[in-house]
Design a protein around this nucleic acid. Structure first.
Lengths: 168, 168
DNA sequence: CTTAGTGCAAACCGTTTGCAAATGC
DNA sequence: GCATTTGCAAACGGTTTGCACTAAG
């Protein structure tokens, strides 16, 4: 019931999507609207599978395939950004009105930390210019261990030492 | 025949690999030696499949699996670096005595251009420090169209215009 | 009523794994 | 001889595709 109400108070993103569909002569369907809506309700990063499960809750008849195909449309119309995760999966994040950023990726817990550095961005522009390259997008990922996992590691070590002390 | 001679004049990398095998109590096999040797003879970037075919020429009995498993060992002992390509495949490049660098990737022809920027590297260090992150590796890729493909595009456009002019 | 979208199942593709036989040490 | 490695075939996992059916415009 409140699904209907929810879609009534049209978000700016919905309008962008509908315009895009019209412009490219694609059809406006209930599934596409639902998927966009569920995507907009997420925070941070979702995988296609995450989104599939979230959509399933609201309409269990929607298939995998439609999720993938719709996510692609969202990327094309600038509402979503694709991000290659650490294990090869794709993650999706909001793109509209979100400033560009890159990621620190914890290889232990999968946590994503966003960073942005003006200087790096402009140095990138220099590099691209130097090679006569036409830059379309970039992916700057730093892999490592986040502060929390480092702490957890240290804690585990302590416990380990205790255990050794006790068993000796 | 000259395979034997070739392996006789042992490269520094071969020694590193053998040391690594000994250290980790892994076995020294003809396949592993051959794969390393073929890998060292490549330039730039090879996919596992590229390497598989190159190895096949010298010994057609070697299987896929051994290539994959050996490449992993080469990464572990610091002789090879894994690079996520544009389409999800992995590429391998020489790591030993090769300075670190990142890549411009042409999404049209797949060309890889290496770049290195000291300032970006040190800005990265700053960022990592700011978040208490322990950096293990990074992947900085700029996707776009290389100078050659841009030129080719322009040339194609010209031809296109001619064609239109002629058919009109 | 024409064209595009949907859901399903099957295909895909690079990579990984289980296993029996072969090999290093 | 014991453990590791090999090559094969089959499994995997995320994504894509072919197709008959349904729905949008």
């Amino acid at each position: 019931m409140y699904n209907v109400i929810h879609t009534m108070m049209e978000r700016e993103e919905t309008r962008i999507f509908h315009d895009y569909l019209k412009r490219t002569r694609l059809k406006h369907t209930a599934q596409r609207d639902l998927i966009l809506d569920v995507f907009l309700d997420t925070e941070d990063h979702v995988s296609s599978e995450d989104l599939y499960h979230l959509v399933k809750v609201k309409d269990p008849t929607v298939g995998f395939t439609t999720i993938y195909r719709t996510l692609k449309l969202l990327v094309e119309c600038g509402l979503a950004r694709e991000l290659e995760f650490h294990d090869g999966r794709m993650l999706y994040e909001h793109e509209y009105k979100h400033t560009h950023h890159d990621h620190l990726i914890c290889t232990q817990c999968g946590r994503l930390i966003e960073f942005y550095d003006e200087q790096i961005e402009s140095l990138q522009d220099d590099i691209v210019r130097r090679y006569g390259f036409k830059s379309l997008r970039h992916s700057h990922r730093i892999f490592g261990i986040c502060a929390e996992c480092q702490q957890a590691e240290k804690d585990a070590e302590k416990v380990g030492h205790h255990a050794v002390a006790l068993t000796n």
